[in-house]
Design a protein around this nucleic acid. Structure first.
Lengths: 345, 345
DNA sequence: GGCTAAATCTATACCGGTTTAGAAGTGCCG
DNA sequence: CGGCACTTCTAAACCGGTATAGATTTAGCC
């Protein structure tokens, strides 16, 4: 069409000329910086509006050394990842704060931890992002000193077990486990087992510790614990192992929902009725939890809320240089049909 | 430490000076362009190596008007999204081709279709990406002319029902539905129903049509069809409706696995035994399919392969200006325990 | 040896913003 | 009324690459 109308070609120089000022002043006006009189600022913004000027992100990136994007690197086997809806919800939450700010999210799904570190390095040397989300915290997590050394701002999802220069956004998930154990104990269960997550992962460890503590509080001993890597198949295997014992548990507390759902499947396959012969609780309240039979008694997590909070915190850190830790409301038990009083025989 | 060692500050000018050539020549050598003698090129690359120079992505973006990133906008309710592992696997596949090329993936999860269009516009005006993946094709999809007008290269996941300037990467999913119906018919089922996806979505429509066609071929009439929006809850509702009829079907072909799994749950809740009283088949072979009870007979999809193919195609389009359509191997039926011969009563 | 064509390379103008040094204008004070 | 500080603004350097016009060298041929 008319080249003068081609909005994609409007540059800061056009705005400056039209408004009768210098490029620099337009830049100042745009970024709300002092040194521009109120009326000049208004005129500049007005001209920018009628010309349909959008400052070039690329030029801004080059000269300001920012990238206006946040990064998220997920190191997981894609198969396992797929069954865990945490990330997509989390990302949706992140998006609700990024989009209005004109920021983008750069996502990487990598197969293993070493690729993960390499990815962070590339992200930094390319100046691809201004900060990152750090999830699935591990014991003595190398990523924390690594990112710190790279000088890349970050937020950790959960509180690390080490000294960390980064703000954290965490949720008390031990409460949910405690409520699960109490619920089962109140129903009359005495042999309660726990299918735990990976001991290398902080939340796996924490839930396991919460389980043991709650068992002792209830006067039920330590309780049997089986470790897994959080994957569905591991959850199925663990359940099979537990149920094939001479004295199988009458209730199992799973560290996440996918494993709990696999647990229901294994029980049915072995002819063990849920919840009559075996009570099951999960963790996360994924959508499937409501639709399997019996519906899963589980602990509600709020990944979208996490995403919002994490994004807000990370933005604050990047902009002001510091940010406070955030503690989200504790996860609560949601009672459905998969846990009931044990049949006495 | 030593500023001369600070690799992040090495620029093309440093390399040029050290190699005794001009900036321009370094650029040419870097980009494998003609006009540089073999030995000079070698020397430049060697100097670049010892200096640890990494060309600035930001500077490259500004002057070359490329962004070295691809975009993926997903318009779905995050709840629904979470239960569908397609995307994470797809993204993992995409990543396997982007990472080695130094490209990044910009992901947006948006709540609705109009936000989706706005997101594409922002992506373009910001020059955030060089191309995008277009999934969940709809009837007469507005996104196709929209992206075409914006001048943003794209690949469609599946073949559109309209004239499209973009290459497509598709898979014949009708074969899987046909195999499902044949399998059920061979088992002796005569009243087979279909819980279809959204009629507004191309793959929903296509699977539905394939179902009807296969039913006729088998001489079983049209078969009862219930439309849904592909969500778990809709799948559960549809199953309930089907089973509450006077003459309920003895088998149900679901348009995706999440709905099929919800279907198993509903059947159990209603005291309908799967597969004795009701056979069920799904579509996608998500990880859960193997672990519910009975294990789901379903159609195998290969989202990672799709991701790889789509990324390769999109890159080709961007680099050469054109790319051929790709047809992936047809999806095949995977037989597990959720479908069996009907009990005759 | 002279002349042309091709290969190689340099200089410099971009890309479109941000930032800084300093020029011009304004107000207040003694 | 000169001096000083402050505000407002301009000009030009800068971020770090790419692209193009033209200078220089090399090669080929009669």
């Amino acid at each position: 069409m008319d080249p003068a109308q081609d909005s994609s070609k409007v540059t800061i120089a056009d705005v400056a000329r039209e408004a009768g000022v210098s490029k620099g002043l337009v830049s100042f006006a745009l970024n709300d910086r002092p040194g521009v009189s109120a009326e000049t600022r208004a005129r500049i913004l007005q001209v920018a509006g009628t010309l349909g000027w959008t400052p070039s992100l690329r030029a801004r990136s080059l000269s300001s050394k920012r990238s206006f994007a946040l990064g998220f690197v997920i190191a997981r086997d894609p198969e396992v990842l797929g069954s865990d809806p945490f990330f997509t919800s989390f990302i949706a939450g992140v998006e609700t704060v990024l989009a209005p700010e004109g920021l983008a999210l750069v996502l990487s799904v990598v197969p293993d931890a070493s690729t993960e570190l390499a990815t962070y390095r590339t992200l930094v040397t390319d100046g691809r992002v201004d900060g990152v989300f750090l999830s699935d915290l591990r014991q003595d997590d190398v990523r924390i000193p690594y990112l710190s050394e790279l000088g890349l701002p970050a937020v950790t999802l959960g509180r690390p077990d080490q000294l960390s220069p980064f703000p954290s956004v965490s949720i008390d998930d031990t409460n949910g486990i405690r409520e699960s154990v109490r619920h089962l104990a109140a129903l009359g269960h005495r042999r309660i087992a726990h299918v735990a997550g990976s001991p290398a992962m902080l939340h796996g460890n924490r839930r396991r510790a919460a389980f043991t503590a709650a068992m002792r509080d209830a006067g039920l001993g330590d309780g049997q614990v089986v470790e897994t890597d959080f994957s569905i198949s591991a959850g199925a295997d663990a359940t099979r192992r537990l149920l094939r014992q001479d004295q199988p548990p009458t209730a199992i507390v799973f560290a996440n929902d996918p494993m709990a759902i696999a647990g229901i499947g294994v029980a049915q396959e072995l002819g063990v009725s849920v919840p009559d012969d075996l009570s099951i609780t999960g963790f996360d309240d994924i959508e499937f939890a409501r639709y399997v039979y019996p519906a899963l008694t589980t602990v509600g997590a709020t990944p979208m809320v996490w995403g919002r909070a994490a994004a807000t915190t990370l933005l604050g850190l990047i902009r002001t240089g510091s940010a406070d830790d955030i503690e989200l409301p504790a996860a609560r038990l949601i009672i459905r049909g998969s846990a009931a009083a044990p049949t006495s025989h």
